[in-house]
């Protein structure tokens, strides 16, 4: 009877150890499915085509070989909302769709980088996420106005009571909001964009 009990206990400990070791080598798949608030800004009177490539719309970031962040649909939602706050008339297209004839500016977005830092890496009690986007801004004839790299940063308040997936998801959501805020507040401060707008305005005055 006692031997049976001991055997059962050994088996139980063995199963727990296997499960724990399995968890140590696990891959974290993070899905960010957040909606973003409506933007409070005054859009400028520019007609812009925003090109979301298939790669951008279905993007999954792999900051390291153990973490995958499914960013595609969230970043498309965020940028749709943000660009509507920047421009009066916006067309959202994919790379196959031809440009509408009244387009004045074309913006193509791509993911440049995704980085993640966990408490064991940054020696802080927080999870951190960095996102980097590249905005290629051209006029309707395809002439490059500027190539702008835009960062977004997010972190969790602490690491307490969070699973790794949940923590990275929360930090990514903060980073996306930060990227949207950065775009809304800084886009018209880019010297090349500012210059292009001034030229456009003086051209329309001359006409």
């Amino acid at each position: 009877m006692r031997d049976n009990k001991r055997k059962y206990l050994c088996k139980l400990i063995f199963v727990i150890l296997i499960l724990q070791l399995g968890a140590c080598g696990s891959v974290t798949n993070v899905t960010v499915n957040k909606s973003f608030p409506a933007v409070l800004s005054t859009p400028k009177e520019v007609t812009v085509a925003i090109v979301f490539t298939d790669e951008f719309s279905g993007y999954s970031g792999t900051p390291n070989n153990k973490t995958t962040i499914d960013l595609g649909s969230s970043q498309v939602n965020l940028f749709k909302s943000a660009f509507k706050g920047l421009f009066r008339d916006v067309y959202f297209l994919n790379e196959q769709t031809p440009l509408p004839s009244d387009t004045e500016m074309v913006i193509s977005l791509s993911n440049a980088e995704v980085q993640v830092a966990t408490p064991s890496e940054n020696y802080l009690n927080v999870f951190e996420v960095w996102l980097k986007y590249n905005l290629s801004v051209t006029d309707s004839d395809g002439r490059l106005i500027t190539n702008w790299f835009m960062p977004g940063y997010g972190k969790t308040p602490n690491a307490f009571m969070y699973s790794k997936e949940n923590a990275i998801s929360q930090a990514t959501n903060v980073a996306l909001r930060d990227a949207g805020a950065k775009l809304l507040l800084d886009f018209y401060r880019i010297p090349a964009v500012n210059q292009w707008l001034r030229e456009k305005s003086s051209e329309s005055k001359a006409q």
């Binding site: 933007v39 903060v174 909001r177 930060d178 805020a181 507040l185």
Partner: peptide, 10 residues
């Protein structure tokens, strides 16, 4: 309600 004006960095 006031996004993007009261985000951590803005």
């Amino acid at each position: 309600s006031i996004y993007p004006w009261f985000e951590p960095r803005t």
